[in-house]
Design a protein around this nucleic acid. Structure first.
Length: 190
DNA sequence: CTTTCGATGATCT
DNA sequence: GATCATCGAAAGG
Protein backbone atom coordinates (compact mmCIF):
# COMPACT_ATOMS: atom_id res chain seq x y z
CA UNK A 1 0.00 0.00 0.00
CA UNK A 2 2.14 2.91 -1.25
CA UNK A 3 2.19 5.99 0.92
CA UNK A 4 0.24 4.43 3.75
CA UNK A 5 1.31 6.03 7.03
CA UNK A 6 2.10 4.03 10.18
CA UNK A 7 0.20 6.52 12.33
CA UNK A 8 -3.07 5.42 10.69
CA UNK A 9 -2.81 2.11 12.56
CA UNK A 10 -2.27 3.59 16.01
CA UNK A 11 -5.04 3.50 18.60
CA UNK A 12 -7.14 6.58 17.93
CA UNK A 13 -5.96 8.62 20.92
CA UNK A 14 -2.31 8.07 19.99
CA UNK A 15 -3.11 8.86 16.37
CA UNK A 16 -4.75 12.13 17.43
CA UNK A 17 -1.51 13.13 19.15
CA UNK A 18 0.67 11.93 16.27
CA UNK A 19 -1.28 14.05 13.79
CA UNK A 20 -0.32 17.28 15.57
CA UNK A 21 2.42 18.83 13.43
CA UNK A 22 1.58 16.90 10.28
CA UNK A 23 0.95 18.80 7.05
CA UNK A 24 -2.45 18.33 5.40
CA UNK A 25 -3.12 19.56 1.86
CA UNK A 26 -6.00 19.25 -0.59
CA UNK A 27 -5.02 20.16 -4.16
CA UNK A 28 -1.95 21.84 -2.71
CA UNK A 29 -3.94 24.02 -0.29
CA UNK A 30 -3.73 23.62 3.48
CA UNK A 31 -1.29 23.73 6.38
CA UNK A 32 0.01 22.19 9.57
CA UNK A 33 -2.45 20.38 11.83
CA UNK A 34 -2.47 22.14 15.21
CA UNK A 35 -5.63 20.75 16.85
CA UNK A 36 -7.34 17.34 16.86
CA UNK A 37 -9.88 15.33 18.82
CA UNK A 38 -10.15 11.54 19.21
CA UNK A 39 -13.49 9.69 18.86
CA UNK A 40 -13.42 5.99 19.71
CA UNK A 41 -15.78 3.14 18.87
CA UNK A 42 -17.60 2.89 22.19
CA UNK A 43 -17.25 6.54 23.04
CA UNK A 44 -20.60 8.17 23.89
CA UNK A 45 -19.60 11.31 21.97
CA UNK A 46 -18.67 9.42 18.80
CA UNK A 47 -20.86 9.03 15.74
CA UNK A 48 -19.82 5.37 15.76
CA UNK A 49 -21.23 4.59 19.23
CA UNK A 50 -24.44 3.06 17.88
CA UNK A 51 -22.73 1.10 15.13
CA UNK A 52 -22.50 1.61 11.36
CA UNK A 53 -25.02 3.85 9.57
CA UNK A 54 -25.00 5.32 6.07
CA UNK A 55 -23.46 8.53 7.36
CA UNK A 56 -20.60 7.04 9.39
CA UNK A 57 -19.76 4.15 7.00
CA UNK A 58 -16.25 5.51 6.37
CA UNK A 59 -15.45 5.17 10.09
CA UNK A 60 -15.93 1.42 9.77
CA UNK A 61 -13.71 1.10 6.70
CA UNK A 62 -9.92 1.13 6.25
CA UNK A 63 -7.76 3.48 8.30
CA UNK A 64 -6.23 6.47 6.58
CA UNK A 65 -9.43 7.48 4.81
CA UNK A 66 -11.48 10.61 5.30
CA UNK A 67 -14.76 10.64 7.19
CA UNK A 68 -16.57 13.82 6.16
CA UNK A 69 -19.95 14.74 7.58
CA UNK A 70 -22.23 17.77 7.61
CA UNK A 71 -22.51 19.63 10.88
CA UNK A 72 -25.49 21.74 11.94
CA UNK A 73 -26.84 21.64 8.41
CA UNK A 74 -24.28 24.08 7.04
CA UNK A 75 -20.69 23.11 7.78
CA UNK A 76 -18.46 20.18 6.86
CA UNK A 77 -16.12 18.40 9.27
CA UNK A 78 -13.11 16.23 8.38
CA UNK A 79 -11.90 13.17 10.28
CA UNK A 80 -8.99 10.77 9.74
CA UNK A 81 -10.12 7.17 10.24
CA UNK A 82 -7.56 5.47 12.50
CA UNK A 83 -6.96 2.14 14.19
CA UNK A 84 -7.75 -1.41 13.04
CA UNK A 85 -9.91 -1.90 9.95
CA UNK A 86 -13.64 -1.73 10.74
CA UNK A 87 -12.88 -0.49 14.25
CA UNK A 88 -15.05 2.62 13.97
CA UNK A 89 -12.70 5.28 15.37
CA UNK A 90 -11.56 8.58 13.88
CA UNK A 91 -9.64 11.77 14.61
CA UNK A 92 -11.47 15.06 14.03
CA UNK A 93 -9.18 17.67 12.48
CA UNK A 94 -10.10 20.89 14.28
CA UNK A 95 -7.54 23.46 13.13
CA UNK A 96 -4.61 24.09 10.78
CA UNK A 97 -1.89 26.68 10.71
CA UNK A 98 -2.30 27.77 7.07
CA UNK A 99 0.87 27.46 5.00
CA UNK A 100 -0.04 26.63 1.39
CA UNK A 101 -2.48 28.38 -0.94
CA UNK A 102 -3.15 31.35 1.32
CA UNK A 103 -4.77 33.42 -1.42
CA UNK A 104 -7.13 30.60 -2.38
CA UNK A 105 -8.14 30.11 1.24
CA UNK A 106 -8.65 33.84 1.81
CA UNK A 107 -10.98 33.97 -1.19
CA UNK A 108 -12.96 30.93 -0.03
CA UNK A 109 -13.26 32.28 3.50
CA UNK A 110 -14.52 35.71 2.50
CA UNK A 111 -11.53 37.72 3.61
CA UNK A 112 -11.49 36.91 7.31
CA UNK A 113 -8.30 37.44 9.29
CA UNK A 114 -5.59 34.90 8.47
CA UNK A 115 -5.68 33.47 11.98
CA UNK A 116 -9.32 32.49 11.39
CA UNK A 117 -8.79 30.85 7.99
CA UNK A 118 -8.58 27.27 9.34
CA UNK A 119 -9.17 27.73 13.09
CA UNK A 120 -12.13 25.39 13.51
CA UNK A 121 -13.41 22.19 11.90
CA UNK A 122 -16.00 23.98 9.77
CA UNK A 123 -13.62 26.78 8.87
CA UNK A 124 -10.83 24.52 7.64
CA UNK A 125 -13.23 22.54 5.47
CA UNK A 126 -14.43 25.79 3.89
CA UNK A 127 -10.83 26.94 3.34
CA UNK A 128 -9.82 23.62 1.72
CA UNK A 129 -13.17 23.16 -0.08
CA UNK A 130 -13.81 19.81 1.59
CA UNK A 131 -17.31 18.38 1.18
CA UNK A 132 -19.21 15.11 0.89
CA UNK A 133 -17.35 14.25 -2.30
CA UNK A 134 -14.23 13.64 -0.21
CA UNK A 135 -15.88 11.18 2.19
CA UNK A 136 -13.98 7.87 2.10
CA UNK A 137 -10.98 9.12 0.12
CA UNK A 138 -7.44 8.18 1.22
CA UNK A 139 -5.75 11.11 2.89
CA UNK A 140 -2.25 10.10 1.81
CA UNK A 141 -3.00 10.15 -1.91
CA UNK A 142 -4.14 12.81 -4.40
CA UNK A 143 -6.08 15.05 -4.24
CA UNK A 144 -5.04 14.93 -0.57
CA UNK A 145 -1.54 14.88 0.84
CA UNK A 146 -0.62 14.11 4.45
CA UNK A 147 2.99 14.48 5.55
CA UNK A 148 3.79 13.34 9.11
CA UNK A 149 5.48 15.67 11.55
CA UNK A 150 9.27 15.60 11.38
CA UNK A 151 9.64 15.19 15.14
CA UNK A 152 7.68 15.16 18.37
CA UNK A 153 5.45 18.18 18.98
CA UNK A 154 4.76 20.07 22.22
CA UNK A 155 1.18 19.01 22.92
CA UNK A 156 -1.48 20.39 25.24
CA UNK A 157 -4.52 18.33 26.23
CA UNK A 158 -8.06 19.08 27.30
CA UNK A 159 -11.73 18.09 27.04
CA UNK A 160 -13.41 18.02 23.64
CA UNK A 161 -15.48 20.92 22.36
CA UNK A 162 -19.13 21.14 21.43
CA UNK A 163 -20.27 17.73 22.68
CA UNK A 164 -22.93 16.83 25.24
CA UNK A 165 -21.76 13.32 26.15
CA UNK A 166 -18.30 12.27 27.30
CA UNK A 167 -17.61 15.90 28.11
CA UNK A 168 -14.86 15.17 30.63
CA UNK A 169 -12.77 12.81 28.51
CA UNK A 170 -9.54 14.72 27.72
CA UNK A 171 -9.19 13.75 24.09
CA UNK A 172 -8.62 17.18 22.56
CA UNK A 173 -5.01 17.87 21.59
CA UNK A 174 -3.30 21.06 20.48
CA UNK A 175 0.09 22.36 19.45
CA UNK A 176 1.27 24.33 22.47
CA UNK A 177 1.28 28.07 21.87
CA UNK A 178 -0.20 27.99 18.37
CA UNK A 179 -2.20 31.12 17.47
CA UNK A 180 -4.37 29.02 15.16
CA UNK A 181 -6.23 26.93 17.76
CA UNK A 182 -10.02 27.12 17.54
CA UNK A 183 -10.10 27.84 21.28
CA UNK A 184 -7.43 28.19 23.93
CA UNK A 185 -6.59 25.32 26.21
CA UNK A 186 -6.82 25.77 29.96
CA UNK A 187 -3.11 25.38 30.66
CA UNK A 188 -1.87 24.87 34.19
CA UNK A 189 -0.91 28.04 36.01
CA UNK A 190 2.79 28.73 36.41
C1' DC B 1 -13.64 40.85 27.24
C1' DT B 2 -17.82 37.16 27.77
C1' DT B 3 -22.23 35.01 26.86
C1' DT B 4 -26.24 34.18 24.04
C1' DC B 5 -28.69 32.92 20.09
C1' DG B 6 -30.30 32.10 15.24
C1' DA B 7 -29.21 29.81 10.93
C1' DT B 8 -30.25 25.41 8.62
C1' DG B 9 -30.86 20.53 7.15
C1' DA B 10 -29.32 15.79 7.32
C1' DT B 11 -29.64 12.01 10.37
C1' DC B 12 -31.62 8.95 13.43
C1' DT B 13 -35.39 7.51 16.70
C1' DG C 1 -39.77 15.35 16.23
C1' DA C 2 -35.26 15.99 18.55
C1' DT C 3 -30.61 16.31 18.14
C1' DC C 4 -26.62 18.02 16.74
C1' DA C 5 -18.16 16.82 16.94
C1' DT C 6 -20.33 24.88 14.31
C1' DC C 7 -20.01 29.67 13.17
C1' DG C 8 -20.64 34.49 13.41
C1' DA C 9 -23.21 38.34 14.76
C1' DA C 10 -25.25 40.67 18.53
C1' DA C 11 -25.81 41.90 23.15
C1' DG C 12 -24.09 42.55 27.78
C1' DG C 13 -20.08 43.81 31.49
Amino acid sequence: MPGRLPLFDLPVVEAARALIGARLLLDGVGGIIVETEAYDRDDPASHSVRGPTPRNAAMFGPAGRAYVYRSYGMHWCLNVVCGPVDHGAAVLIRALAPTDGLDVMRARRGGVADRLLCSGPGRLCQALAIDRSHDGLPLDAPPFALVPAAGPAAIVTGPRIGITKGVETPWRFGLRGSPYLSRRFAEAAG
